[in-house]
Write a protein that binds this DNA or RNA. Sequence first.
DNA 1: AGGCAATATTTACACGTGTAAAAAATGGGA
DNA 2: TCCCATTTTTTACACGTGTAAATATTGCCT
Lengths: 346, 346
Amino acid sequence: MNKKKKISTMNELSDAIGISRPTLSRYFQNPASVRPSTSKKIIERLESVDYVPNFFATRMNRKSTGMIGVIIPYLNDLFFTRLLEEIETAAMEAGYTVITQCSHSDPGIEARAAETLMSMSVDGALVAPLGNQSDRAVYERLQSHLPFVLVDSRPATMPNVDFVGTDHVQSTGIITEYLCRVGPPPAFLAMPRVNFNAMERESAYTKKVTELGYDADVIGVQAIETDWHFEAHGEAVMDHHFARGTYLDRSILCANDRVAIGALRAASRHGLYPGRLPEGGLRIAGHDDYPLCPFTIPALTTVAQDFEAIGKTSVSRLLELIAHKGDPQSPQIKLLPGALKLRESA
Amino acid sequence: MNKKKKISTMNELSDAIGISRPTLSRYFQNPASVRPSTSKKIIERLESVDYVPNFFATRMNRKSTGMIGVIIPYLNDLFFTRLLEEIETAAMEAGYTVITQCSHSDPGIEARAAETLMSMSVDGALVAPLGNQSDRAVYERLQSHLPFVLVDSRPATMPNVDFVGTDHVQSTGIITEYLCRVGPPPAFLAMPRVNFNAMERESAYTKKVTELGYDADVIGVQAIETDWHFEAHGEAVMDHHFARGTYLDRSILCANDRVAIGALRAASRHGLYPGRLPEGGLRIAGHDDYPLCPFTIPALTTVAQDFEAIGKTSVSRLLELIAHKGDPQSPQIKLLPGALKLRESA
DNA sequence: AGGCAATATTTACACGTGTAAAAAATGGGA
DNA sequence: TCCCATTTTTTACACGTGTAAATATTGCCT
């Protein structure tokens, strides 16, 4: 058991170990700012004592709190957890503490989360928005209060904000192109419109497929709800079609991998085996490179989003904004390319 | 655009809208504590102004910060995100702000996270531990500083701490029993020993299966690493066995669903179709009711952990501890039962 | 041993808000 | 209209630490 004397303020600490409070303060902020002999003395005497500095008090009259805030829309999606992991890692390496808030796909909670971050005086914020349901005023408010950059998806109506995400025209483009090359032109299985990417991918598909001289065929739109049950959506839509004997030997590009997982399941239930057959046949492809893709049956062909690059780039851009807070240089829009991941399903 | 006058302290606010600072302070903490007419006046005048209270300063000399800390070991696992979702929801309903920290499966980061939480003076902490790698001293330190309860898994060597989690003897028991009833006694496909549950389930399986008069058969142990690549582990181990023609018509109880997803994949690669055949044959079952179970091929039979109950119970227990901080009543260990989820795979 | 530069201590004020106590203002009932 | 209870304002101090300025101490070099 821990029998060290509990000390709750730096003043107590000061006369418990015989070092003046200002020196202690300087030591805790930067051990190198005191003489080595003093530093050694402090370290030794700290051993005999149980002191936890008060985070709030330390940050109160510094210009910087050393924290950045992150808002993600939804937790139960490995896409966002992967992204968050990269962000946290990058922030940690830069010496920042990350405060994560989740919107739970509720605009009200998203707004409250933004208030919390501002109230905590985070140095900057990274936000992966909800979709059209989001209150745009929330982002404007955030922007007017602190450096912030949008991640993953963004409202078309807010071109004036820093953004880091995947170039969906490119990513959706290359997989559309691939599918057209190896088989019949793909249909596009839409996803619930929970964010702006849903529409971006849809129109990127349409653009590319017509560009190649085919007709666009978007399916599953009428059944679309705005929840996050992607797999169920994909399965239900394709089950409906397969049961009617349609799309049995087509290529199907799914708006994301989770929808594709549902589609794979529907195929299986109807005795269909999507794959890279030489002469057409059913193919199913996704988008994102969801961590489970290598383990689906069959393994899912998809376009990878570069999680690591998105995470690192967004953090470093945010730190840049934090650094020269003054100059309102034109916002940077960084669109990162996706990479084709050929596996078994298409 | 927002053209409201920015106000950064309550003093400025006070003489901007003509209400004394103490009254404002009382209003923000509890709008009902001021006269209705005053409250109305404040609300109106607040409209014309942009003021964000300083979170740190408000909490500085209150007894409670209104925050609870949560530490989870790993982000890219829907089990933990589901749990976190329940915890956040329960905490929010109770009026608490949640500060989430992730260990990223690193004991060093876990220790730092604990320090951060103590430093922020959270009212209490909920911790889902890493495994044996965790430094036990971290938990003892947490316990000596604030109300805290372990969630999901716990060190056998720390019986003296509040805990909320699944009763693995029961949960693993009922699925073992089920498998024995409908087919040959199952083998147990172990999981990487990232936490204490890995061993708990393993021994619960052994106990039950010998109790029923069969020999325990634990596989995949020699290949075990301590990382979180569960699916890859499950696939590799079963691929090895299936390739050698072993376990082809056995029941296989996987230590968790993610391992099972890998096992399903291995089965598929070898042309095997696990399922509920009348007369034996390959069966694969999991544990947890990972959100993706209904969408695997075949849909995975498993034992559900009661995410909601674990989340709600752990939060309410923590709030209890926070409420009567004084009395060190004997720690409560709440073991919640699992429920059989029969689907297609076993 | 003496002197000088680097570092530590002392003292004091600052951060933004909570909160207590005393004084002043308000509002409702007679 | 006056009085009293309620509420607001005024004033002052508190929370725990950062930080600046002046003073005292330390340690190294000659």
